[in-house]
Write a protein that binds this DNA or RNA. Sequence first.
DNA 1: ATAGGGTTAG
Length: 626
Amino acid sequence: MLCFPSSGLHLLPHHGNSHSPTTQSPTPDLLHNFNTPFELKQVHAHLIKTNTPLSTLPLSRAAFVCALTPSFAYAQKILERVEKPDIVFWNSCLRTFAEGDSPIDAILLFYKLRQFDVFPDNFTCSFVLKACTHLLDILNGRIVHGYVEKLGLQSNLFLQNMIVHLYALCGAIGDARLLFEKMSQRDVVTWNIMISQLVKRRDIEGAYDLFSRMPDRSVRSWTSMIAGYVQCGKPKEAIHLFMKMEEAGMKPNELTVVAVLAACADLGALDLGRRVHVYSNQSGFRRNVHISNTLIDMYLKCGCLANARRVFEEMEERTIVSWSAMIAGLAMHGQAEEALRLFSEMIQIGVKPNDVTFIGLLHACSHMGMIDKGREFFGSMTRDFGIIPRIEHYGCMVDLFSRAGLLQEAYEFIMNMPIKPNGVVWGALLGGCKVYKNIALAEEAIRHLSALDPLNDGYYVVLSNIYAEAERWEDSAKVRKFMKDHGVKKTPGWSSIMVDGVLHEFAAGDESHPQAEEIFQMWGKLLQKIKIRGYVPKTSVVLLDIEENEKETFLFRHSEKLALAFGLMKTPSGRPIRIMKNLRVCEDCHAAFKLISETVDREIVVRDRNRFHCFKDGSCTCRDYW
DNA sequence: ATAGGGTTAG
């Protein structure tokens, strides 16, 4: 039943050692970490030689040696000399082990205690349970649970909470739930444990059900729930709950701030993000690295590169997350050179990059067509930093080649990948096939994509587009029929814009907005202005079998155009316009926005699915390469 | 003496 730790524990003295123990000085490490009676003797001898009182001996270590070698009276004698070990003493040993880097020692010691006629109490159990938690050791956890029942400690809330936590953490959510349901009393910690564990398992509905049923909610309850919504891709719900939290008079803490800022990043909710930033500083959270990192990400994803940079520069201590976020953000904003410069600065001061850092770097390269640099980083990643490329890195490389028109190289790269390509990888190739009009390779990509990711409409839409551009209308129609037959629905495009703290959302062709008429008139005026400057509607992006003038109607009702017209109507001149879109920005809108930015002299920032487009003075930061 | 969250990419 009992097994001994594998961590270099020697049960017998080193008989082969010809030196007398007293002739050797123990290393400083050994003074605290002796594992055998022999080593204990060495330490003891050292204490005598240096005239150090015996009480300086690390007792928990002595107890450990003693407990594991009860036949060796020496260790026991030392213990007896120092103090009479009672349950409190043993508990503090257990605690030391449980919180140290070898928690298994606590479990071993626990099983040994009965040989010393020591009976565990609630503290004993709590420390062993803590050890089980650190080890994710549900088997020993269940045994300790049995002891808790046998010892009549089942009404101890601390222990019950720890057991519920342990079960859930080890994946036995059913057992955790059962125990939770039959507990005679629960406190806020019990509820919070269940909520955060359900969130961890992506059961956000289950978590909210408990949240709404619990009698008292602490800041932690609110924060777990808000963070849960963010993790489950529901940032609106997260922000809604944050508002409720404020209404309830709860004071957000550091973790709440991180969660809300993450939600703001996802939603592009700059106003709230700024407000939370101010609150965070007022609350004295300025030096919190997690908060600063999330702030950087929030500002980047809201299109405020300068603010992100300021937060980054003002940090006293940066982690790899800070650097990676900044590099990825610069890539998103089309500032590849600056991203690369930041990377070399980081290497120069000795910060070690991780896999995420390289995803950002490779993005920077592919967005700017820096093929050789990208190849270099991909090679250096493993060679110089020992990072094994993940599927995301392969995806970046295929994207890099495909965007640059090196379709054959991209295809061969996929064929030679040591891991199975996923939808993102083939999708990147497909994207390149559209730009460089390679129908055969696009069909090959679709063959893989329809097997890998059959419900993703985006790929079929691209293929249908490719056929349409080649004026192969029948094939284009076939793709759309295929989608219809297989129940693949085209994701409706939408764009949004925040005006005076209110989020306005527009779908393509949307006439439901209360000010729809004014918006259309505004667009009409803009259209006149840009037509003078040479704008020609690119009706080929409209994939409908209709008359040319009808196509224009569709084209002019694209969601990003509606959002822009509305933004220009509602915001003071000179102020930048920020628009978010769920899909990639349309080619025609891109051309139109460039001209509009010039005619109305406004900066227009569009965050699309992949990156930022910042239109200013007639050009875009993507340099039309996206 | 004992219990419960965090950041980059995807």
